[in-house]
Amino acid sequence: MNAWLMGADVLLFTLVPCGIAVFRGNAIERLVALEMAGIVQTILLVFLAEAFHRPSTYDLALAMALLTFGGGLVFARFLERWL
């Protein structure tokens, strides 16, 4: 049990409020909570990669960081325009 893993444990529980907000509340709130979860997830992946001593899995965090923005944009565009 190293410090990174403990950090990951703590971070994991910050996903709980995000989850609650994703499933209740209005459309905008849900979207914001989803974006928040994406950010938490990115940091969590960094922590876990460090905890497992697997430097090659930083790719995952990087992918998450790059793609979350696009995901948010998808929802924003479609909620705004069509749905």
Binding site: A27, L34, A37, G38, Q41, L44, L45, L48, D59, F75
Partner: peptide
């Protein structure tokens, strides 16, 4: 709303795969 929830579910699922050592 279901799609937003599904995205969130995908995030958690990705975490599960990672923690089960399937990067």
């Amino acid at each position: 709303r279901q799609v937003v929830g599904l995205s969130f579910y995908g995030i958690i699922l990705g975490l599960l795969f990672f923690i089960l050592q399937a990067p």
